[in-house]
Design a protein around this nucleic acid. Sequence first.
DNA 1: TTTTTGACTAAAATATTAAAAAAGTCAGAA
DNA 2: TTCTGACTTTTTTAATATTTTAGTCAAAAA
Lengths: 203, 203
Amino acid sequence: MIVADKKREQIIDGAIKRFIHFGIGKTTMNDIAEDLSVSKPSLYYYFPDKKHLIIGVIERVFHDFFELIKKKYNPDLPLEEILFNTIDVRNTFFQKYYMLRITEGIPDLLNDDVIKGKLQTLKGSEKEFFAEIFSRAKEKREIEHDDTFHVAELYLESLMGLCTMCIMETGKDLFPDKKAFNKMTLKQKNLTTIFVRGLRCAD
Amino acid sequence: MIVADKKREQIIDGAIKRFIHFGIGKTTMNDIAEDLSVSKPSLYYYFPDKKHLIIGVIERVFHDFFELIKKKYNPDLPLEEILFNTIDVRNTFFQKYYMLRITEGIPDLLNDDVIKGKLQTLKGSEKEFFAEIFSRAKEKREIEHDDTFHVAELYLESLMGLCTMCIMETGKDLFPDKKAFNKMTLKQKNLTTIFVRGLRCAD
DNA sequence: TTTTTGACTAAAATATTAAAAAAGTCAGAA
DNA sequence: TTCTGACTTTTTTAATATTTTAGTCAAAAA
């Protein structure tokens, strides 16, 4: 890695630490600079503005997420087991980076076109990965379904939907406790079981 | 119906009209009173406070919803068709009463214990109704699954989850347009198809 | 006795402004 | 090329005044 890129990554590391602890909204560029014992203009040398630093953080988290999920992916396992593993990885990341949720903090961060586009792209990558999982399961005759990308989309949105329901239940901005968290994971796995069976039976 | 109750219902009618058009937060007790050509204290004769008027509205909407959904319920139809019908009823209500969504308007209305309890109870009723649907389908040997209440809960939460995803996608407080709305309905039905098949296959 | 009202108070939301904090810039040093 | 101290500009926050709205009450009307 080039030196400049290394520094960039260090800044992202520092930002993530702050974000995880205090949230994006409560973290200032000064905080991050001080943590790293550098001046604020140094930060601006690597990132044009705070928004792009946040984007860097988002890219990093997704990158790590994809890395881990791909590492854990074993196509030889039964589909249900594969999906259970991805749920665990997903939820570990969800829990770890919960404070990142950009809905809070800077109010109209989700309305920003650059960020929206970035998230859209990353979500697209995830869908493609899941489409791949379903496609391979189809090759193995484990399931019967044509439009695997569509299935992946539906499956992922259902999981995210259950997750959102869980958050809403615990009360908008409270950190979901261990119990609620486990309940959510269980629901996602139960849905997965039914979902996979539903794909097995032909039309 | 007793005269007093009739008046009460008229007030709820008026409140609903305002709420649908301007949302709960932008509707004052004066607005409602003026619409009905009565004085504000008259409203307070029938409802101790605005919160209880809102509760009255919630009860009314759910009541109408249950009425219609039960009316449309024909146990002789295949499970998938039954669920498709309920989705249509659900989403018609969702669209009609979208502006009621109590998340907005009065900020901490969802944190109120009375309202939370009321919503909990009403959601419970819905779950029981769906458990009934699944139970009957089981009796007809259409599906094989033991814990029908649990299945109903999972199914409903998945539907609501997809709905929430749809709302989030269109942008927090924008009214979801016809297109997004149809897309959501389609996703819910696609999930239903897979879900029902998943329940058909035994363990 | 039950229902309704005009005139009121208390509480809450809103708008206004001043002060503080944060984002972001720049000339120049390392 | 990378970094910094000192700076400006933009946003948040805090404090306060103003308006709006929820809710009350004594008394009138039904």
